[in-house]
């Protein structure tokens, strides 16, 4: 049986070190070929928002290309690709009501809309679940 683990995330992008740690954990699981479920709740639904834009940074003295500013939507896409290449799958589910109240429905390909029932179903089908709440 394939190994499946589930994460629930709550932080919006660019606000907390928790987001980066979550991506590191997902990366480890994806490289192993595990199936990884992510339920993005509240602010975390903006993580795969398609309109994120990189910018230059005058303080760093770099133009946009040199700065290579991280966009969380690109991290999600890269992890989906890594999971697939290793024989697994990253299933990213955005809480639909959370998306609507924030107006971030335009997401990258592969992200789908869901409900808290999806979190319960995903967790029930997983070996382990980690909730990374916000403050």
């Amino acid at each position: 049986m394939a190994t499946t683990i589930t994460f629930a995330l709550m932080d919006p992008p660019y606000e907390s070190a928790r987001s980066t740690t979550a991506f590191r954990l997902i990366d480890i699981a994806a490289r192993r070929g595990y199936n990884v479920n992510v339920f993005a709740y509240e602010g975390a639904v903006a993580t795969p928002f398609a309109q994120q834009k990189a910018h230059p940074n005058a303080v760093h003295g770099r133009d946009a290309a040199q700065e290579n500013h991280p966009l969380p939507k690109d991290w999600v896409a890269a992890l989906m690709q890594a999971a697939a290449q290793n024989g697994g799958k990253l299933d990213w589910v955005n809480c639909g009501l959370c998306v609507d109240e924030r107006g971030v429905a335009e997401v990258i390909e592969g992200v789908r809309r869901g409900t808290p029932g999806d979190l319960w179903r995903m967790a029930s089908e997983s070996q382990g679940t980690l909730i990374i709440g916000t403050r």
């Binding site: 709740y41 509240e42 409900t115 808290p116 029932g117 319960w120 709440g133 916000t134 403050r135």
Partner: peptide, 27 residues
């Protein structure tokens, strides 16, 4: 453990809310 986080904007505590929603889904 997080208390009164955006409860006015959300009209509830979002974890109490998701607990209700998951209970409704059979949890």
């Amino acid at each position: 453990q997080s208390a009164y986080r955006a409860t006015l904007e959300e009209q509830d505590d979002t974890i109490v809310w998701i607990t209700h929603a998951m209970k409704g889904a059979g949890a």
